[in-house]
Design a binder for these strands. Sequence first.
RNA 1: GGGCUAGUAGCUCAGGUGGUUAGAGCGCGACACUGAUAAUGUCGAGGUCCGUGGUUCGAGUCCACGCUGGCCCA
Length: 1147
Amino acid sequence: MKYSEYKQPLNYADVGTDILNWWQENGIFEKSVSTREGQPTFVFYEGPPSANGAPGIHHVMARTVKDIFCRYQTLLGKQVSRKGGWDTHGLPIELQVEKELGITKEDIGKKISIAEYNQRCRETVMRFKAQWDDLTQKMGYWVDLDDPYITFEPEYIESCWALLKKLYDKGLLYKGYTIQPYSPAAGTGLSSHELNQPGTYRDVKDTTIVAQFKVKRDETSEKLFAAPVWERQGTDSQTDVFILAWTTTPWTLAANTGLAVGKNISYVVVRTINPYTKEYIRVVLAKARVKSYFSEFTEIGKSIPSTYSDWGSETKQIPWEIEAEFTGADLVGINYERLFGQSKGFPAFEGEEKGFRVVAGDFVTTEDGTGIVHISPTFGADDFRVAQLNDIPALLVTDAEGKPTPIVDRTGRYVPQMGEFGGRLVKNYDGHDETGTDYKTLDESIAIRMKGDGTAFKVEKYEHTYPHCWRTDKPVLYYPLDSWFIKTTAVKDRLIELNKTINWKPESTGSGRFGNWLENLVDWNLSRSRYWGTPLPIWRSQDGSEEICIGSIAQLSAEIDKAVAAEIMTHNPLTAGGQIDLHRPYVDDIFLVSPTGQAMYRETDLIDVWFDSGAMPYAQWHYPLENEAKFQKNFPADFIAEGVDQTRGWFFTLHALGVMLEDSVAFKNVIANGLVLAKDGQKMSKRLGNAVDPFATIQQFGPDATRWYLIANAPPWDNLKFDPAGVTEVQRRFFGTLFNTYSFFALYANLDDFRTREFDRIPLTDLSELDRWVLSKLQSLILEVRGHYDSYDPTKAARAIQDFVTDQLSNWYVRLSRRRFWKGELTTDKKAAFETLQECLVVVAQLMAPIAPFFGEWLYKNMTDGMRQEALANNTPLAPESVHLTLLVEANTSRIDTALEERMELAQRISSLTHSLRKKSVLKVRQPLQRILVPVLNDTTRDQVGMVEDLICAEVNVKHVEFLDDTSGVLVKSVKPNFKRLGQQYGPKLKVVAARIQQMTPEEISTLESTGTLVVEIGGEQLNLAPDDVEIRTDDLPGWLVATDGPLTVALDVTLTDELRREGVARELVNRLQNLRKDSGLEVQDKIRITLGGEQPDLAAAVQFFGDYIRTETQALSLTFNPELTGGVTLEFDDYSVPAQLEVVTA
RNA sequence: GGGCUAGUAGCUCAGGUGGUUAGAGCGCGACACUGAUAAUGUCGAGGUCCGUGGUUCGAGUCCACGCUGGCCCA
């Protein structure tokens, strides 16, 4: 069987579709899994995409990364099953449905039933599934699409419930609250989506207060008091110290339980007086904020005398002086007194001991206020978070039913216990008249009280923006609302510990972005007040005293039966037949009965969709309800890959659930890939019209060039600027070259009917230098590429393959070996050339297959289909019909010959230098020259170059390489300091030493060389130089044109003898005749007769001397002169013009 | 505002542990080569290695502070 030959240029998109069809017809993907049955597994988790939008080019990127390592591991012989999956719940789908129906969340349950609404979501979420499946196949992403997990299916939800119950039973699921935007006037929470409506943020003028928090004097705070005792009037070491904090919501001050400072911010203690009470005080605030509160005209000791004694007068500006300075870190841990304590007529507070403390907060700035932030955990999200992190309690009071409650109720009023302010609205939520002259807002009343108490340092009106409810136009309250949490903080240390065992690519995402996130972990808020998602499986009695967490459909059914018996339900809908749907509203219509006979209602929350996806290692197998063994075998994952934006999404939920449920990582290796941007670095978007269509790209360039470009151009974790021109380049430079190399092989292999026998190869020792060299390079390549794949660095793998194919294989091995392929009969040397190239191409096909699966397959099949029968019969490595079913070749390190690789590099560099010399002398390569001269300073170089002399001579068309050594007496040596060595030895003196070395005379150089040491005097000091201290080189040959490359120097002898000229003419003639053959449409193997005309003595001489050569090269049986020749073609070269005629000899 | 990340030729990117002349491909200009030929080679132009300060005999590389872009979070 012949090797297939293709016409130029190859259509890569067709290669893609042809191979894809062949895969499908022959079930290659299935075989790639089934043939590995019983082998070690490589576990991969597919992060489920959502099919509610069309896939983009970035999906091709992300999925290429996934595909590469699954294919690679398969090549290593492992079994890699890849179950596909779909993420189907969540807000984006709800919003899409609402947009299409023209409704809002308000309308759900009114204009449209929850059942209808959820049905729409179910239909919408899979709308683009067909497109996704199509792309998956066309891009060559191998994943099982026939049996995917789908997060809205009852089994999947049931698994989530079972997992939630496990957490519940471990005490890791609890009801608490989070601070959310809330509208007291509407009596409802607001989503961030609602808060982002236009017009919600408005300028308002509020009363603001800089409050004074009195520092408790103890060990921690003593340093604040320790400033020098002032002998001046008014203050001494006993004067109280207050921390100043500014707020635009004074009503929250009564709920203050903490103060936050910036760790790296500078703070000062200022002695001054309270402007309202005129008491002597000391205050703490950020150094950068001092001038906002104190006038430069009243600074004691500077603008006013240090003996200033009129403190407490009626001046508006207060005197002040800085006593001491601290950093925020110094202040952390200081305790202070509660602002509105029991002694002032306010309710008792249990957490008194733990709260009222200074903590560090990363959100603290010195942009405004005092650089110290007042924390009220019940009324601010930041406050809540920092309080949780630092174990600061929220200020709660006991309500009439004995339950803890915030100091503001759901209607926006202070609770009755709040002393003189009890019952007052914190903002005007009922629209009452505010215009009366005596009217005071709550904030104003509080300010008045504080001025009297001496706890207000400054009170002023201030205009700022504040969010308002889009329906009631009233200011939003940040208010604690019920939420269900997973207590991730309980396993925080374990999460951190196990994270350190995960191999993150890039490493910084794991240690930085993810690691920091874990360090600052708060409990996972599971609750979502929505409709389309996994319902929380918790039923509670009205008073919250009894509850049950359901872990399976069976359990739910059993509980319903109890409820039916207790006449709370009329019948059991789960046993009524038909499809079970665990979504709302159906689960909401289920009521259960508690052990004491109370009715229990489902908590109406849905759970965070990230729980769905984080649960996939379990729920994809319907574990823990079944498939225990399957789960165990597939947990944890060896490898996952998703976008870096998943760090706090899927990566986190996988990890958190893995640690909490299995005390294990959920994945061992992870690639967090970056974004795919438009070529100008802009984000791709439909709006800007710069989005790249993945289908069009694959259609135009084929899937392989697209994948190769995405991987080779930048490491996956860097952002990629997608430029189609780059794909073209990959196609041309890499795939084009590889295709050319194959075509070259196929052309001549077919002519000679060459056949490889896998175990009957010419032994390595009989191969030429060049063959052994490229095979050595090939082994090095295998080692390198395997290493890169093993360490999850596909970019380096791709680049290594690319460099080998273009630079080593094509541009050196094939270019230099061409004659061997086309000359004469199928000799041993020719066979060796075929076998070598054959091996290189097959191995390249394997190595590239994970990245370019279609082309790798194409190349493999073209190279091996002809020997398949034989391979099958003997069960050789090439027996598999597909490259993706083969086992990746192992590097044979005994074939790596470093010395050979080194001397070949010398040959390449010397050739390159010679080319450049020819260029400078305007001597084309076709003109033979006598010699090149290479100065050598040691025998090693001479030996090395000697062994590749023939290659160099052939490549640059010279007769021989001549070495020049010391004995020739023409070498001019120069010397360069070895800075690394000298620097270590002489340090600061290096400059003078180096200068001296550069001035070394030839005599000194030869002394150093012959005796191994040289004594020089520098600045009156005797220094011993060793040969290693300098680098000796010869970069000049007087009288010769030389070229240098590092330590290598080459001179070209440009003398032209008559014989060389004649040979040059002969070669020109051969060249023109070859062109003529080709232009005449002759086949490579056709024999010809040549007749030349004209009368040119030089030409005749050339033909006379080199007739044999010309005949051999042009496959001419005869070469004759006929001065009378007419017709034919005229060959033009140099100064010649030769009529010529070719005649094909029919066999 | 915080965390992470990037900034090197017109463009896309390489540049272990610091070593004095910073590389490649593409693009551009010139010239060659020609039985792989819509391929290939050689030469050339092109650099404030984001900036400023520091450490060092020596910084693209290490440190500090900034600037600009990106992602995530607030």
